[in-house]
Nucleic acid binder design. Sequence first.
DNA 1: AAAGAATATTCCTGTAAAGGAATATTTAAA
DNA 2: TTTAAATATTCCTTTACAGGAATATTCTTT
Lengths: 114, 114
Amino acid sequence: MSDGNPGIDMAALSALAEPNRMQIVELLREGPLTVGEIAERLGLRQPQASKHLKVLSDSGVVEVKADANRRIYKLRSEPFLTFQSWVKSFRHVWEERFDNLDNYLRELQSKDNQ
Amino acid sequence: MSDGNPGIDMAALSALAEPNRMQIVELLREGPLTVGEIAERLGLRQPQASKHLKVLSDSGVVEVKADANRRIYKLRSEPFLTFQSWVKSFRHVWEERFDNLDNYLRELQSKDNQ
DNA sequence: AAAGAATATTCCTGTAAAGGAATATTTAAA
DNA sequence: TTTAAATATTCCTTTACAGGAATATTCTTT
């Protein structure tokens, strides 16, 4: 991670970087939904909804639960937690802690979490 | 935002959803860099580096400062702060607060910030 | 068993975007 | 004022991917 390897799930990020899929994610905040419900509420055709959900599923953003005829999709927490810790790690950048050694050492003292 | 409008900067998100640009962002954590330095350290050709930096710049992820012959790029904080508040707002989802009315009302009481 | 619902998949097409190479532009240096 | 360095831009080609339409698949219902 101190190499060029980003501490973030690029698959999940790419999946979210598409308006319809972002809308699906926003919709799923309310709770799990079936494909049909998602398609209807977002004005998508069923095949497109399925395709987008597949991308979200493959990248771990959502998970599926089979219920007979239907597939119930819901958000997974893991990618969001990962994203959160990645974003949080930028706090160091804004706080320009490396201006002098004093600040740097002081920062090492304070805890990083939250 | 309670409509389908995501509380996140999609332009910035899309910009980051490209490996080279993500690497540029990771690199700029260390501090501002010129185009040439970025290109060299990431093994990119100069034109590609410029193009990626333009995308990052247009989407507000980075900002430029002209220094004579060179352009010094550095990260902007705003999009990351936006990301952070967006991703934080998912905490509600994982904590399944809407299971029953009691929890729901209790949640309304507690403060949302942080 | 047949018909219908819900979902996934396939094939096709159009388009956005990334890389390569060349060149334009701006500023410094000689 | 010519040359070189740093960066941006343009043009071209290729590729990834999203949408449309049709169809396959799976399960329920009758």
